[in-house]
């Protein structure tokens, strides 16, 4: 009985660890403490899911007018441009996100990965590798 219990406990812990690996920490936390910004980011996310990129960008820009230093919002906007295959914009927006990311290592990581992807798409393999290295720091 005790054995089963401890095994179950281990299983739960392992499952928890695994799930933590799947979603990066910054995506689990709310994008902002401001309900107005959260609402706009949610709208943007559902627009992205439906490939309505122009609408998503409009909502995110509106959110950024409320919280212009929110690194998460800049990252979301970079993802919209990535979805539209506008790689130069996506890269620059990710850099903008990084400039506000401060100690959010997970977000920095995501931004550098996104930058690496943009550079790869543009054929800049050296730049992509450099970005990937930065993402691992």
């Amino acid at each position: 009985m005790r054995l089963i219990f401890s095994r179950a406990l281990i299983a739960i812990v392992v499952a928890g660890l695994l799930s933590a690996c799947v979603t990066t920490p910054f995506e689990e936390s709310p994008v902002s403490g401001n309900p107005a910004v959260i609402a706009l980011a949610d709208t943007a996310r559902s627009d992205i899911a439906e490939y309505r990129y122009a609408q998503a960008a409009a909502s995110l820009e509106r959110a950024l007018r409320i919280e212009p230093r929110n690194a998460r919002l800049w990252h979301e906007l970079a993802r919209v441009r990535l979805g539209q295959e506008d790689y130069p914009q996506a890269e620059n927006l990710a850099k903008r996100s990084n400039s506000y990311a401060m100690n959010d290592g997970a977000l920095r990581h995501a931004n550098w990965k996104l930058i690496a992807e943009c550079r790869r798409e543009l054929g800049d393999l050296v730049g992509a590798e450099a970005a990937l290295q930065k993402s691992k720091k």
């Binding site: 122009a54 950024l64 130069p88």
Partner: peptide, 8 residues
Amino acid sequence: RYPLKVEQ
């Protein structure tokens, strides 16, 4: 729409 464009 005139979107926000940034370039470092």
